[in-house]
């Protein structure tokens, strides 16, 4: 990932900044600048998601791409945020611990790094809620 691409997405990656259409109330993550329902009547504003969510489905990655191969095995899931949107994120737990419907809490973790000398990509992962 280029430095500029990572930098541009820092608000989303660190703080789950998405958007909301104040006309219909719908939330968007990743952020949309245009509401597909309200169209020209829509009014888009920034929204910071609380981050809490529920596991919709999950998989265990045992053979990963180069950036993630030191992390295997790890759990990847689709998490439905309390406000509605779904995001793909890593769940920090043992593969046998995850289940559909599991409540999860966001944590700040190291996602990947651009080699030994490149930029470190921080962002949001999830842990099982207490």
């Amino acid at each position: 990932m280029s430095v500029a691409r990572f930098w541009r997405k820092i608000p989303q990656r660190y703080n789950l900044i998405g958007t909301q259409c104040t006309t219909c109330g719908r939330y968007f993550f990743p952020p949309r600048t245009f509401c597909p329902e309200c169209r020209r009547a829509g009014n888009i504003v920034d929204h910071k998601f609380r981050g809490y969510g529920t596991v919709v489905t999950h998989t265990v990655i045992r053979t990963a791409s180069e950036q993630f191969e030191q992390m295997t095995p790890y759990v990847l899931a689709i998490v439905e945020l309390d406000e509605g949107p779904r995001i793909t994120a890593q769940i920090v737990c043992e593969p046998e611990e995850v289940f559909i419907g599991m409540k999860v809490t966001p944590v700040f973790r190291r996602i990947a790094a651009d080699g030994e000398s490149g930029v470190i990509h921080y962002g949001t992962k999830y842990v099982p809620a207490e």
Binding site: F108, I120, Y122
Partner: peptide, 15 residues
Amino acid sequence: DLDEDTATIAVEAAR
């Protein structure tokens, strides 16, 4: 953890 360092620990403590 594998994905924890001084920055992630500092952020969690501050939050």
